[in-house]
Computed example of a mutant assay.
Amino acid sequence: MLIVMAGLPAAGKSSIAEELARKLPAAVVSVDPVEAAMRRAGVDRGQPTGLAAYFVAEAVADGVLAVGQSVIIDAVNAVEAARQQWRALASRHQVPVAVIEVMCSDAQVHRRRLERRTRSIVGFEEPTWEAVQQRRTEYEPWTDHRLVLDSVGDLASNVTKAREYLALRSRPAARG
């Protein structure tokens, strides 16, 4: 199965993705560390590293799916082009795709999380709250069937909801 996480930076995607990966099990392919690695390798910040990181993540996920393992994509996935990339990957491997969109309904909590987070990804600069607000204006509405989780809720409850959703999506009738 291909599980696609989506949502603004610091909404709570990575926390849910990591806990899901432990429970399922599944590999997590996160775009931010890929982008940071590209920068550490000398790719200039002026280059389209964000787009390239999605392509690298796709190549890694392709390899994981090729050996019959599930993979979780941890990325903002704000635009239709990125979303189509994951649908096409799932189609190539003939596996179900499940989308989990994570949001934080409390702007103060969201901002506090962003400003306090320390992921220690060498070469990755965390976005400012202003940058997250700009991303919000660029975030295209989803048209796919998806589970929407509010990260104001506790992590355990959100992971339980996600696992229930994934169990339904993994059935053959739910593919696509």
Rank of each mutant, 00 (worst) to 15 (best):
A36P: 07
A36G: 02
A36Q: 01
M38V: 09
R39N: 13
R39H: 13
R39Q: 04
R40W: 02
V43C: 14
D44K: 15
G46D: 02
G46V: 05
Q47T: 09
Q47S: 13
P48K: 10
P48F: 03
P48M: 03
T49C: 11
A52N: 06
V56G: 03
A59I: 09
A61L: 10
D62G: 11
D62N: 15
D62W: 13
G63F: 08
V64A: 06
L65Q: 04
L65K: 09
L65H: 03
L65R: 03
A66E: 05
A66L: 12
V67E: 04
S70E: 01
V71L: 05
V71M: 08
D74C: 08
D74S: 02
D74A: 02
A75N: 05
A75L: 04
V76W: 09
N77C: 09
N77F: 06
A78P: 07
A78Q: 08
V79D: 06
E80L: 13
E80R: 10
A81D: 08
A82D: 06
R83S: 00
Q84M: 09
Q84E: 07
Q85I: 01
Q85W: 02
R87C: 05
R87Y: 04
A88C: 11
A88K: 11
S91E: 15
S91F: 14
R92A: 13
H93T: 07
Q94I: 04
Q94F: 12
P96V: 04
P96H: 08
V97E: 02
A98I: 11
A98H: 12
A98F: 12
I100N: 04
V102D: 01
M103C: 03
M103W: 00
C104Y: 02
C104L: 02
D106P: 03
D106R: 11
Q108S: 14
V109Y: 00
H110Q: 00
H110R: 00
E115N: 11
E115F: 03
E115H: 10
R116W: 05
R117G: 10
T118C: 14
T118L: 11
R119N: 15
S120T: 08
I121L: 02
V122R: 06
G123P: 01
G123I: 03
F124D: 01
E125H: 13
E125Q: 14
E125D: 15
E126P: 12
W129L: 05
W129H: 01
E130H: 09
E130K: 10
A131M: 06
V132P: 06
Q133M: 11
Q134P: 00
R135Q: 15
R136Q: 14
Y139E: 02
Y139L: 10
T143R: 12
D144C: 03
H145W: 13
H145Q: 14
L147A: 12
L147F: 13
L147K: 10
L149S: 00
L149H: 06
D150P: 00
D150T: 00
S151W: 00
S151Y: 01
G153N: 14
D154L: 11
L155F: 06
L155P: 02
S157C: 10
N158K: 07
N158R: 11
N158A: 05
V159F: 02
